[in-house]
Computed example of a mutant assay.
Amino acid sequence: MILHTLLDYDVLRVIWWALLGVLLVAFALTDGFDLGTGTLLPFVARTDLERRVVINSVGPVWEGNQVWLVLGGGAIFAAWPQLYAVSFSGFYLAMAAVLLALILRPVGFKYRSKNEDPRWRAAWDWALFVGGFVPALIFGVAMGNVLQGVPFRIAPDMQIFYDGSFLGLLNPFALLCGLVSVAMLVMHGAAWLVLKTEGAVATRARTWGMGAALAVVLLYALAGWAMATHVDGYRITSDIVTQGASNPLFKTVAGMEGAWFANYAQHPWTLGAPVAGFAGALLALLGLARRREGATMLFSSLSIAGIVLSVGASMFPFILPSSIQPAASLTVWDASSSHLTLFIMLVGGMIFLPIIVAYTSWVYKVLWGKVDAAGIRDGNGHAY
Results as ranks from 00 to 15, higher is better:
262 A>L: 13
25 V>Y: 09
39 T>R: 04
152 F>D: 00
118 P>F: 12
124 W>S: 11
78 A>G: 13
89 S>P: 02
275 V>Y: 03
147 L>Q: 01
83 L>C: 08
24 L>H: 13
116 E>D: 15
13 R>A: 07
18 A>M: 07
254 A>R: 15
89 S>Y: 00
197 T>D: 05
29 L>R: 03
140 G>L: 02
286 L>I: 06
289 A>N: 09
200 A>M: 09
343 F>Q: 14
252 T>H: 12
53 V>M: 12
45 A>F: 11
30 T>N: 07
59 G>I: 07
11 V>L: 12
258 G>D: 07
172 P>K: 01
342 L>G: 14
170 L>S: 11
308 V>T: 02
249 L>P: 10
92 Y>R: 03
268 P>C: 04
290 R>Q: 06
246 S>K: 04
310 S>T: 03
296 T>P: 10
143 M>P: 14
353 L>D: 13
278 F>Y: 01
171 N>Q: 11
51 R>V: 08
368 W>T: 13
335 A>K: 07
188 H>Q: 15
194 V>M: 05
29 L>T: 03
246 S>H: 09
22 V>R: 15
22 V>P: 14
126 W>C: 01
140 G>S: 00
48 D>I: 14
275 V>G: 08
164 G>H: 08
180 V>P: 01
22 V>C: 15
322 S>G: 08
373 A>C: 11
78 A>R: 11
224 G>F: 00
307 I>L: 00
86 V>H: 10
232 D>C: 12
52 R>E: 04
311 V>R: 15
357 V>K: 13
2 I>V: 10
217 V>P: 09
260 W>A: 08
172 P>F: 01
228 A>Q: 12
